[in-house]
């Protein structure tokens, strides 16, 4: 986390992405490609869990990178590059979710659509390391956890994803979400209470039951 008064020079010494972004500012296309390659998986992972759709997540991620490029001349290294990147992603994703609420779309199940109807069995390539029991259990669990994550509101979900997957501290999340550190502390507390309530049946407590505590509010 960049401290107040930290100069661009000091930051670029610590954050190689700031140096990379300085090259992007000088219109170096290879530096921009390097940034895209470095961050695209991380960005799409967070966006996909946030919006719940890989295609939409990729479109949003593409728009995030294009905005980074368009804003390159205005970029001033006041924080880590990743904080700036996820700030842009946060704005775009929340706008997209708000628009979706105004114009709800019904997702079409790909397997049941198209001229061939359900997808032919030969197209479902089987994983060579396929173990029916273990894999199914893991997939089911992942599904349950995704649903638990979906019970959180958008802000709680984003804070959880940034904390868990991006390992951002409260101050960094506050910067990305344009909130105070105190607000993030409270937001994450409520999010984790809600998550625990949603995952209660899947928490193994060595024979003890999960404490029955009130859920966090929105």
């Amino acid at each position: 986390m960049a401290t107040i008064g930290e100069t661009t020079g000091q930051l670029s010494l610590r954050d190689p992405d700031v140096r990379l972004m300085a090259r992007v500012r000088e219109d170096d296309p290879s530096a921009f490609q390097e940034l895209v390659e470095k961050y695209h998986h991380r960005l799409i992972n967070v966006l996909c869990h946030l919006v719940g759709n890989q295609e939409e997540a990729e479109d949003l991620a593409q728009e995030v990178f294009l905005r980074v490029y368009r804003s390159r001349k205005k970029y001033r290294a006041r924080a880590k590059f990743s904080t700036w990147l996820f700030t842009i992603a946060n704005n775009l994703a929340l706008n997209s979710l708000r628009q979706r609420k105004r114009k709800p779309v019904v997702p079409l199940n790909v397997r049941d659509s198209g001229p061939l109807g359900p997808r032919p069995a030969e197209q479902l390539v089987r994983d060579p390391d396929y173990h029916p029991g273990g894999r199914l259990a893991r997939e089911e669990l992942a599904d349950v956890i995704q649903r638990a994550l979906d019970t959180l509101n958008e802000r709680q979900r984003l804070a959880v994803l940034l904390n868990k997957f991006e390992e951002m501290n409260y101050a960094e999340i506050a910067k990305v979400m344009n909130l105070s550190t105190k607000a993030i502390k409270s937001l994450l507390s409520r999010a984790r209470m809600n998550l625990r309530a949603a995952l209660k049946d899947y928490i193994f407590m060595d024979g003890e039951i999960v404490p029955d505590v009130p859920e966090g509010q929105d």
């Binding site: 695209h40 998986h41 799409i44 992972n45 996909c48 869990h49 890989q54 997540a57 990729e58 991620a61 893991r138 669990l141 992942a142 956890i145 995704q146 994550l149 959880v160 868990k164 984790r192 998550l195 625990r196 995952l199 899947y202 928490i203 193994f204 407590m205």
Partner: peptide
């Protein structure tokens, strides 16, 4: 433990 369960979420890779 609830927090650790999030590790089971699949890591989504870009195409």
């Amino acid at each position: 433990k609830a927090w650790e369960l999030l590790d089971y979420l699949p890591k989504v890779q870009a195409s």
